[in-house]
């Protein structure tokens, strides 16, 4: 896990350096490999992070670095290193506000309405690859907040899993520094955190709703048990999987979701070329994949 000092110290990049067409090719390559898209307004970040890697490997120009990513024998591990750099610092509480708005204003009301008809008033969220717990706690706080309105009288649980034991242990502690809570709205801060020295501790009212465990998403036998889920979050995790493992994991996600369930990736991450069952849906400022309720609609009929 990177420390804050490295997080905040992006390399400075001259504007004309950004114009090198090799960056576009690197951007496209990253998308093909990982499904993560760096729009031009995020180019500065991409470039400054890549420059760090260029220094490590000794590439003198973006073009030469492109060669490190495509033609050198250790290109795959270099791509992983680059992806690591790019996704550093992405983890914090309330990371993507458009995703949170989509949950509160569209997804949760839609799930509530559909499930109410079945007289089943429980929701189950899964944070897959939860790292040090920022995402599952965020989800639990939002769901708790919704039990005041849309989900009055409902119960819910957030299942949080990660491959890394140390991350899971740290997640269970649920203590964060001010950098990790920088996006948390004040009203949530007040309600769901207590001050603990210089840090912030997740309140006891939140904790019982989140269960942490270690899980290897490539372990088919374990993945088979993940069933009856309404919403899955899996942000910037699948980018490290090869094509086959990715396809298999997504199949597990699909099977694990209830009909009408949703699957969220990182805010600019897509299931590039590996999804045929999920439907891509758009919300304001966010996208997700939706497991449509199966009907016998024939393709092509408006």
């Amino acid at each position: 896990m990177p420390n804050e000092a490295t997080l905040l110290k992006d390399e400075t990049v001259a504007p004309e350096y950004l114009a090198d067409p090799a960056w576009i090719r690197i951007r496209d390559l990253i998308y093909q490999v990982s499904g993560i898209y760096q729009a031009e307004n995020k180019f500065y970040l991409l470039v400054s992070r890549a420059v760090r890697r260029m220094k490590v490997v000794g590439a003198r120009s973006p073009r030469e670095y492109l060669e490190f990513l495509t033609a050198r024998p250790n290109r795959e591990s270099e791509m992983r290193n680059l992806l690591n750099e790019i996704t550093i610092g992405e983890t914090c509480l309330f990371r993507s506000l458009p995703q949170i708005d989509a949950l509160r204003k569209v997804v949760i009301p839609s799930l509530a309405e559909a499930k109410k008809k079945l007289a089943y008033t429980k929701l189950r969220f899964w944070s897959a690859g939860c790292s040090t717990g920022e995402e599952p706690y965020t989800l639990a706080m939002i769901l708790l907040e919704e039990t005041q309105s849309t989900l009055k009288g409902w119960t819910f649980e957030v299942v949080a899993t990660d491959l890394n034991d140390r991350s899971v242990a740290k997640a269970q502690e649920g203590v964060y520094n001010d950098y990790a809570v920088r996006n948390v709205p004040p009203e949530f801060m007040k309600k769901y955190f207590t001050k603990s020295g210089a840090d912030y501790r997740v309140a006891d009212s939140v904790r019982p709703h989140v269960s942490f465990s270690r899980l290897n998403m490539l372990d088919d036998s374990k993945m088979l048990f993940m069933r009856g889920i309404d919403v899955i979050f899996c942000c910037n995790v699948l980018i490290y999987f090869d094509g086959k493992s990715k396809t298999r994991t997504i199949q597990h996600f699909y099977n694990g979701l209830l009909p009408n369930g949703y699957f969220f990736l990182g805010h600019s991450e897509s299931l590039f070329g590996i999804n045929d069952k999920f439907r891509l849906v758009h919300f304001p400022g966010a996208t997700a994949y939706w497991k449509a309720v199966e009907t016998s609609v024939k393709a092509g009929t408006p």
């Binding site: 891509l280 304001p284 939706w290 408006p302």
Partner: peptide, 12 residues
Amino acid sequence: YEPRQVDFANEP
């Protein structure tokens, strides 16, 4: 903000 879910591939 217009809260909505759009499934472009199934829009008429």
